[in-house]
């Protein structure tokens, strides 16, 4: 049986892992390569790195860091932020990343999904989306609007419409990061995650709001997520990856148990 993936997310700022609430009040947590190695040893199934400031400051991605991570872990990892086009995608993949996550870039230029998917395969191209709840707004039938650039800009795009369009363009996976739940550690947005997971034929990764193991059980059982991103709950040391996995196994969720 295919297991549900647990994916630590490392937000990088000036080559340090940081954590903030809704992209603000960032505090430094440690070295990304060391933290990646630690989570790998503790049984995480995949990793994702976002260069959270690359997009805002229009800096290119830190390719040396990607290379060091690739030497340190033997599991797939995704890199997002600061990807400007196909040449950047190729550099990141050749440095050893398995996947590239595009978010603002894809909103601005949806064809980049198609180009990346044709050049490197759909399994490499992940769409990150940051939907914001906008209930009762007739412009957004799903009830969610896509935001970009660290939630700072509204796009006028409906979340389900964008997810389906991205799949048609060739995206291989979608990370659904709830703006409303991000950084709260109060649980994933179950309605949002389920809405997207049930609307698309590609795997969906739930993101934003993980605060305890029960939140992960809920998002797998109720929202049909294929994978879930965790960040603050492990970065602070309140939980460990192996501890979370043990609780998920006890709750009957299929989880990778040999590492």
């Amino acid at each position: 049986m295919l297991t549900r993936r647990i994916i630590p997310c490392l937000d990088i700022h000036n080559r340090k892992v940081t954590k903030g609430v809704k992209f603000q009040n960032n505090i430094e947590l440690g070295d990304p390569v060391e933290m990646a190695a630690r989570y790998y040893e503790d049984g995480c199934d995949e990793l994702v790195f976002y260069d959270i400031t690359a997009s805002a400051e229009r800096r290119p991605i830190d390719i040396d860091m990607v290379r060091e991570v690739a030497h340190a872990v033997r599991i797939p990892f995704a890199v997002g932020g600061g990807i400007a086009g196909l040449p950047d995608m190729e550099r990141v993949l050749l440095a050893g990343a398995e996947k590239i996550s595009v978010n603002s870039l894809a909103v601005k230029n949806p064809q980049i999904i198609n180009e990346g998917s044709r050049a490197f395969g759909a399994q490499c191209i992940v769409l990150g989306m940051d939907p914001l709840a906008v209930p009762d707004d007739p412009r957004f039938p799903s009830g969610y609007e896509i935001t970009v650039r660290g939630f700072r800009e509204h796009t006028g795009m409906d979340a389900i419409e964008w997810a389906r369009k991205a799949v048609d363009l060739g995206v291989g996976e979608i990370v659904v990061n709830s703006v409303d739940a991000d950084g709260t550690r109060a649980g994933f947005s179950i309605p949002l995650t389920r809405l997207i997971a049930d609307a698309v034929p590609v795997p969906v990764v739930a993101s934003g709001g993980a605060g305890n193991s029960q939140h992960l059980v809920d998002v797998f059982e109720q929202a049909h997520a294929d994978a879930a991103i965790i960040a603050g709950m492990i970065h602070t040391g309140d939980y460990t990856v192996s501890g979370i996995k043990q609780e998920l196994v006890q709750a009957g969720i299929p989880i990778r148990q040999h590492w």
Partner: peptide, 13 residues
């Protein structure tokens, strides 16, 4: 089952 997505992606036994 539409919940079985293709590609088969992730860790399996």
């Amino acid at each position: 089952n539409p919940r079985d997505k293709v590609p088969h992606m992730g860790w399996n036994r």
